[in-house]
Nucleic acid binder design. Structure first.
Lengths: 204, 204
DNA sequence: CTATATTGGTGAAATAATTCACAAGTGGAG
DNA sequence: CTCCACTTGTGAATTATTTCACCAATATAG
C-alpha cells in the first residue's frame, strides 16, 4: 500500500483523538472537527481516511467507534505491544512510569541498565534487569519494541543489541542517529534538535 | 526565504553533527560523509546547503567550522537561548537536569510547578518557582522558550500562559495538541504517537 | 605537466503531497 | 414532499520536494 509517512502520522494522531471521543461516548465526528483537533485541514483528514478506503456518512461524519476500529486495523494499533526501556537514568526511569504508554496499548514490561547500583535503587512496579539479560528477557517476554534512553555514545551499541535480540522497532531518545537494518523501524526523538528547529523557525 | 521544513530539520541535524566534528578538530567534511551520518543522501545534503547559498570546495568538501558558523547564522543557532520548563513531574524534572540542552546552546534557567510540595522536594541547581510567578520570571529573565511537561489536561492552559508571558517558541511534551497564535513556534513531542508510528510502520 | 579520480553545484526531470472544487448524498425543517 | 444546509469523497490542479545527471573545479599521483 502506498500511504505516505505524513499521512500515517496524521492518522495515528486521529486514532488517539478518536480514543478520547470514544471514552466520551461521542458517536459521530466530522472531518472538520477532527481537523480542528489535529490542527490541520478538513480535506486533509478526509483524504487521509479515504486513502485507507474507509468511508463516513454524508451529513453525519464518521462513526467514532467504527472509524477507530478500522484505523486501528489498518495501522496495527489494535493489539497491545510489549516494549522495554534501555537506560534507567533520569529520563529512562521517568519513562518507566509514564502511565500513558499502558493506556495507549504499549506495555512496558522491562527496564535494563548496566549499573547494578541504579537497578537496586530504582523504585517501580516494572521489573528491571542488568544489561546482560537483555536478549534473554526480550526473547522470553516476546518484547517487540525497544526504547533507547542511554547517552549518545552508547546508543549505537544498544541499538545493535536490541536488533540482535529481535525487537522489531525502536524509539531512540538519544541525540545520535543510530543505524539499523532496514527491516527494523526506527524513530528518533531528539530533544535538542527539536529546540533547534524551534529556534530556526523563530524568525522565518 | 523559502526553505522547507524538512530542509530546516535536516540542516539542524547537520549543524549538530558539525559541532561534533569541530570538537574533534576535523577540518573538512564531504557531503557524502554528512549524508552517511544523517542517514540521507549526498545530493540531499548538498541541495539543502546550497539553498542557503553556502558553498564548499571541490575535492575537499565543506570546511567544518565555517559551515557550522554559516549554518548557525542562517538558522539562528549561534546565540544561546533561555528556556524554562513548566511541570516538574518525573519527565519535567528529568529535563531540568538534561545537560545536553546547555551544551547545545539552550540554557534552562527556571522550572515551574503548581505544587509547592514538588518545589520543595526537588533537588537541582536550577531555580524553581510556583506557577504564580511564571510571567514575572519569564519577563525578568528574558526567557524565550517554554517547555511544557504537564499532563494533557493542563497543556493548553499552560500554553496560553506562556504565550501571554511572551515566549516565542514552545516545545510541548504533552500528548495534546495545543493551539497557539501563528507567530508562536510550537513543536510537539508526543511519545505515544511516536510508538504508534512505529507500530504502523512495522508491517508496511 | 598531465591524467585521473573526487567532490561540489545546480538546472531539469520526476515524484510526491497538498489543496481545491464540486458532485453526490442525506438528515431535518416546514 | 420539497428544499436547504451540510458533509463526505475524489479526480484534477497545483505546489512542493526529491532525485538525477552532469559540468566545473581541483587535489593528487606519477
Amino acid at each position: 500500500m502506498d500511504i505516505s509517512n505524513n499521512s500515517i502520522e496524521r492518522l495515528c494522531r486521529v486514532f488517539g483523538y478518536l480514543d478520547i471521543l470514544e471514552k466520551k461516548d461521542v458517536e459521530f465526528v466530522s472531518s472538520m472537527e477532527l481537523a480542528e483537533a489535529m490542527g490541520s485541514a478538513a480535506h486533509t483528514v478526509r483524504k487521509d481516511i479515504s486513502i485507507l478506503n474507509i468511508t463516513g456518512y454524508t451529513r453525519k461524519g464518521y462513526p467514532v467507534s467504527s472509524l477507530k476500529k478500522d484505523l486501528g486495523n489498518r495501522l496495527n494499533l489494535n493489539k497491545t505491544r510489549k516494549a522495554c526501556i534501555v537506560g534507567l537514568g533520569r529520563l529512562g526511569s521517568a519513562l518507566l512510569d509514564y502511565e500513558k504508554f499502558q493506556e495507549d496499548g504499549f506495555e512496558i514490561v522491562a527496564g535494563f541498565d548496566s549499573s547494578v547500583n541504579k537497578l537496586e535503587r530504582i523504585r517501580t512496579d516494572i521489573e528491571v534487569f542488568p544489561m546482560s539479560s537483555l536478549k534473554e528477557m526480550i526473547v522470553s517476554k516476546r518484547i517487540e519494541l525497544g526504547i533507547i534512553a542511554v547517552p549518545a555514545e552508547n546508543a549505537q551499541a544498544v541499538a545493535d543489541r536490541l536488533v540482535e535480540a529481535g525487537v522489531k522497532g525502536m524509539l531512540n531518545f538519544s541525540p545520535t542517529k543510530v543505524t539499523v537494518p532496514k527491516e527494523i523501524v526506527n524513530v528518533n526523538m531528539d530533544f535538542t534538535n527539536a529546540l533547534r528547529l524551534i529556534a530556526a523557525k523563530l524568525n522565518k
